[in-house]
Structure formats: structure tokens, C-alpha cells
Design a protein around this nucleic acid. Sequence first.
DNA 1: AGCTTGCACAAGAATCATTATCATCTAAAA
DNA 2: TTTTAGATGATAATGATTCTTGTGCAAGCT
Lengths: 138, 138
Amino acid sequence: MERIIELFKERNIRVTPQRVGVMQTLYPSQEHLTVEGIHAKVKPQFPNISLATVYTILELFKEKKLVREIRVRFDRSLYESRVDPHHHFHCTQCGQTYDVDIDLCPTLKKQRIDGHSINDFHGYFYGICRSCRKEKQC
Amino acid sequence: MERIIELFKERNIRVTPQRVGVMQTLYPSQEHLTVEGIHAKVKPQFPNISLATVYTILELFKEKKLVREIRVRFDRSLYESRVDPHHHFHCTQCGQTYDVDIDLCPTLKKQRIDGHSINDFHGYFYGICRSCRKEKQC
DNA sequence: AGCTTGCACAAGAATCATTATCATCTAAAA
DNA sequence: TTTTAGATGATAATGATTCTTGTGCAAGCT
């Protein structure tokens, strides 16, 4: 809570209860949440909060590098508060998303590829997750 | 044309003029097209073709591994006929998408990460493309 | 070449994520 | 406290994608 307000101030983000509430759903957990999911999580605390507000807040957080939007799923975005470089695995069976902490070696260090200047890189892995694989064996 | 019919037969895809038309917009070019774009391209040849039909056909092609859907842009999907492993660069300025033929080394060869079994991997790069960089310097 | 049959297509409606609008309200600087 | 730029909530709008259904056609079989 204190930490969140600190993060806002550092970035010149006006502190409002709704923004703190949204940030609390993502930080410091390492969950990946949909906008719907975030909305549902803050609803008990702010029964009137609008879905549009959640979208607006997330857009702001994204600009200020407080959260990252990931598009490992084709049908909707997920949000997470981990903003350091890492990648994602998406289970095509259960739909769960996992962090992937692998250094995709030399490429990441490059500033240029084919003359394009790289600002960001994101790797998406698809397959069957460990817990779905276990279930199958039963 | 002949090649496309061959590809269909190999995969037990019933040959229809619309399917051939859609495939011709993507093969053997290396363009990345939106569904709208594909629809616009086949329209002259099939003035009555429905957008829903294009979606259905692309879904089939994807299942049969004739095309790949890429989600380098968050707002809509792109389709391409290159199905061999490669990655994509998206220019955040002009919106253009480029192929990236880089081997993201050891990772790709792995079958497993953190116990998850990997079927597919896709790297997305974001930044300013070479032609946008040139323009800036003028 | 003419049946037959299951699948494909067109048209349009429906759905669902996301964005825009705007009137009201509030955080925080003076 | 007052002021005011900016934030929120309600709701409409947008735009991509999916669903539905009646009609039409590909291709295997006579």
C-alpha cells in the first residue's frame, strides 16, 4: 500500500483510491489477470467502479511502466506487474499462462536487427503445461 | 494455382474457388495481411465473398498448417503463408510488420521448459523500423 | 454426364473486447 | 478552503470475430 503510493509519486501519477485498488490486484503478486479479472477483484472494494475506468487506469500504468500488457492469448489481453524482461508460456489446453525466465541469448542484447532498432522483445511459448500433462497420465 | 490445389489435396481440403482465392492472396508472397486486407484482395474476383467466409477459411488453413496467425499487433491478427519457424518485428511508428529470421538459439531446441511441453514458439520484436529511422534523419 | 450428399458459402445478426463521450466528482496545489 | 485540472462512472459506440441459417456447389458414385 505504502509502496504503491510511493511508486505512483515517483511517476507523477495522481493517487486515487481506484488506482491504488487496481495496482493492488497486480502488485506484488505475479499473477496474469484479464481486465475482467481485475475488475472483479476490485469490485468488492469499489462496487461502482466501471470497466472503462479499469481500462483507463491500465493504459496509464502501461505508459508509466508499472505494468505490462501481454498478448499470449489471441482473444484478450493479460496484465502483470512484472516489468523486467521475461517471457510467457500459454497452455493451449487449460488456458493458464506461466512466466518463462529464460535468457533468449545473443538476440536480446542486440540493438538492431535488419536495420530496425529494437526497443522491446517478447517471447511466447505454446504447448501443454506440466499440470495438464500430469492429468493425462492418470 | 496448381501448387495450391496440390497443397489442398495433400491435406484433404476440398477445393473451392473461394479457398483457392484466399490462398492466392497469401501464397507464395511473404506479406502479412489482416482479414480485412485478404477480403479486399479477393473481392474483385469474388464480389460476393463474405468476411465470415474469409474467417472460416483462414481457421481451416491454420488447422491444416497452411498459414500462421500472428498477433504481433494487439488490435488485430495478421496472416502469412510462411509456416517455417521465424519471428516478427513490429514498427510502433508506421505499424509495418517484418519477418525476423534469427535463430533464438538453445531455447528453440528444447522440448520442455519448467516441465511444460513446448509445441510452438514465437518471438515478437518492437521498435522503429529502418525506413522510419531514415525518414527521421531527413 | 447426371444423381446425391455432405460440406461450403452468403448474408446478416450476435457477441465480446475495447474505446469514446460526457457530465459529475475529487485529489492536491495554492 | 478554494480552485481546477484531471479522474471516474454510466453508457453508447466501435470494430474484430463468431454464430446462424437457408441456399448452393464439389466430388464421389452410378
